[in-house]
């Protein structure tokens, strides 16, 4: 029994974090917003990092890593508010193809030549697909109307898990932005971050994020291990991550005051991605119902001796 993320996992996440921090800052989001949303050069950078092949088996030109690794990197994608469809294609689409034994596209995906739109019955749109365009509140999200008759439960779990992982990264980033603003914005002769009215709200966000993260890692491991209860853990992760991110989004805009209500402050990109992912791959109500069926319905053993049931 070991709930520790390994040094390798943490250092890979840190490498990707540093890379995105250096190449995918707020100025990039503003440029993409003004000019086309997607940029082949950014995509190529992700391909060169090996990220499109993260879950592709080595025999097909990938790195052959697991869902916990992918969830950690999805968190980094959330932190950077990455617009390219990396998470969908490489962290949701690839394991779904692998589960079906479909390997013919994997080499192309790893090499970055193919992206995978993922229509699913749970979503009333498909992201980065084809069809009549829909407009998302998130200016960097490309949505299309789509006939979604695929109700595959594993694809749903993968989509929900990776949304949850992005949401904790988004939450981290929004908390960071609010903290930094609280340090520099001065009113009543001191930085507003010195006021307990600000501190305590931000501390509550830190608590929510701290206790959402291990739920996400645990869910990723459960799905990786094909535990019978994995779907419940994924739903738990989606609810916990959504709640932490929504709390942090609302708190962050409040801390930014009227500046937070403007388009020019970067916060809105993260906040809108958070709103979008909150309802994607199963709403809060959908996931809460799955937890309900397990916990109150009695299909999952509960109590102190069943921590990892």
């Amino acid at each position: 029994m070991d709930m520790l993320l390994t040094e390798d996992q943490l250092s890979l996440a840190e490498t990707v974090r540093d890379y995105l921090a250096g190449t995918h800052g707020p100025e990039i989001l503003r440029r993409l917003d003004a000019d086309g949303n997607r940029d082949p050069a950014i995509w190529q950078g992700l391909v060169d990092m090996g990220l499109t092949g993260l879950l592709v088996p080595e025999a097909h030109g990938g790195l052959g890593m697991g869902l916990v690794d992918a969830a950690l990197l999805a968190t980094e994608c959330g932190r950077a508010c990455l617009a390219e469809p990396l998470v969908d294609t490489a962290f949701v689409g690839v394991p779904w193809l692998l589960a079906q034994g479909k390997t013919e596209q994997l080499a192309d995906i790893a090499a970055g030549r193919v992206t995978l739109p993922l229509p699913h019955a749970i979503n009333p749109w498909v992201a980065d697909g084809e069809g009549a365009p829909l407009q998302s509140v998130d200016p960097l999200r490309n949505l299309f109307a789509s006939a979604n008759d695929n109700a595959d439960p594993y694809l749903l779990d993968l989509g929900a898990l990776m949304s949850a992982a992005q949401l904790v990264g988004l939450a981290d980033a929004m908390l960071h932005q609010a903290v930094e603003y609280g340090k520099i914005r001065t009113q009543f002769g001191q930085p507003i971050g010195a006021f307990q009215a600000i501190k305590h709200q931000l501390a509550s966000c830190a608590v929510a994020i701290e206790f959402a993260k291990p739920v996400v890692w645990q869910a990723a491991q459960a799905l990786q291990d094909e535990r019978a209860s994995a779907a419940v853990h994924v739903s738990h992760a989606k609810v916990a991550a959504t709640d932490a991110a929504m709390l942090t989004a609302e708190t962050a805009i409040q801390v930014h005051g009227a500046m937070g209500y403007t388009y020019e402050v970067d916060l809105h990109f993260w906040m809108k991605r958070c709103w979008a992912l909150a309802g994607a791959w199963g709403t809060r109500a959908f996931h809460l119902k799955r937890v309900d069926e397990a916990v109150l319905g009695g299909t999952l053993p509960i109590g102190p001796e069943h921590t990892f049931a």
Binding site: I198, H200, L202, A203
Partner: peptide
């Protein structure tokens, strides 16, 4: 007090009265 500690020591917000 715990929220003050969280804000000051984990998040790095300034202490009360800093200016």
């Amino acid at each position: 007090v715990q929220r003050n500690i969280t804000a000051e020591r984990l998040l790095g917000l300034p202490r009360v009265g800093a200016g």
